[in-house]
Design a binder for these strands. Sequence first.
DNA 1: CCACGTCCCATACTTTCGGATGGGAATGCA
DNA 2: TGCATTCCCATCCGAAAGTATGGGACGTGG
Lengths: 215, 215
Amino acid sequence: MSALNGMAADKIRILIADDHEMVLDVFAMYLSSASDMAVTTAKTLDEAVERISAEGPYDVVLLDLNMPGMNGVAGLRRAIKLNAGKPVAIITGNPTPRMLDEIMNAGSSGIVLKTTGVRSLANAIRFMHAGEHYMPLELVRDRHNAGRTTKNGRLSDKEMMVLSYLAEGKQNKEIANDLKLAEPTIKMHVTSICKKLTASNRTQAVIVARDLGLI
Amino acid sequence: MSALNGMAADKIRILIADDHEMVLDVFAMYLSSASDMAVTTAKTLDEAVERISAEGPYDVVLLDLNMPGMNGVAGLRRAIKLNAGKPVAIITGNPTPRMLDEIMNAGSSGIVLKTTGVRSLANAIRFMHAGEHYMPLELVRDRHNAGRTTKNGRLSDKEMMVLSYLAEGKQNKEIANDLKLAEPTIKMHVTSICKKLTASNRTQAVIVARDLGLI
DNA sequence: CCACGTCCCATACTTTCGGATGGGAATGCA
DNA sequence: TGCATTCCCATCCGAAAGTATGGGACGTGG
């Protein structure tokens, strides 16, 4: 009845990379005690890349989002490309909705929260190893809640998109280029965002959005 | 010769609070295997406070800095007051020099980095339990660099003051009125702040300052 | 003493922001 | 079908922000 038809002897090869050595230790201690998993660790993206290059694609790769070498999802893409189709997932603390989008759009196989105990780890890994996409329930909920209750109506999709750029301190022209829209359009969205968030300028909008957990 | 005069049989009672359950698991798994330690865990500051209130001061308390309930060092002070003189330390990822100052000035017994492996944990805890202050070497180095050259770090008092207004989304003219300074002066400070924080405008400066825990 | 850093102010300039006005197009729903 | 919503673009304008020049005052330490 097991899925390990005839291959039970082969262990799942896992590569986990995180600059928090404590987290690494969790994996080394807990997962290695699971008989069907072999864990390798790294502390930077470069180190992880080396491992993959040297020892071939891993069955599951877990990358910390805030690790040295990862520039947001850029490092994720790099690892995905290198791991030849096998699952690469992100492990992080509290990702923003925007980050979630970027992560999943980059082709990640899932997200593992550090707020989750180690017991669900093994399951998540087996899940992704089977080709599924893994995401904790609370994140799915937040993802659906994207339009949240603000006083003056909720933000539209485009407004949320623009807001996420505002939250990086980008200026209208940059946003327009990135989104391939005209600058006046961005201005309009910014104005609309400020109204809905009762902010008087973009800086306040970012602050309000942050305090509201909107980002 | 030990400080545990006649009480050697008693275990060191440790309370660790972190919203990353993974980290909690590290302690539960590793430290509890050390025969002289008894570990209790919590996921929020309120939960930790409850524990302390209910079961009396712990021998060592470890608090995550980014946990729900901790407003920067405010939560730390609360815990220190409650723990009746026994050591309270902070556990975190990469603290800013400014945070370090605040933490130590608040009366913390030390700082434990998540970038440190679990093996040094037990030593750090025993160290603090003995009444010493524990801080990783790499932090001590950064700490001395903090107050010196104005090259890229350390904001001056006035700059911090202006920054706090920026963080409220106020505009130059307002700040000038509130501080009874001329607007050009405010502009200069803002420019200086942006340079030191490597931000390209006020909005980015606020974001960086927030992420840095500078506010 | 001078050098250095911090703080303060002023003038002048360019760029960006925020707001207003006016229009066109696609969607979905009553 | 009419209507609302959302999206997109354009032009104009005043205000704010950001940059670049000046300069003067105050302290600390070499």
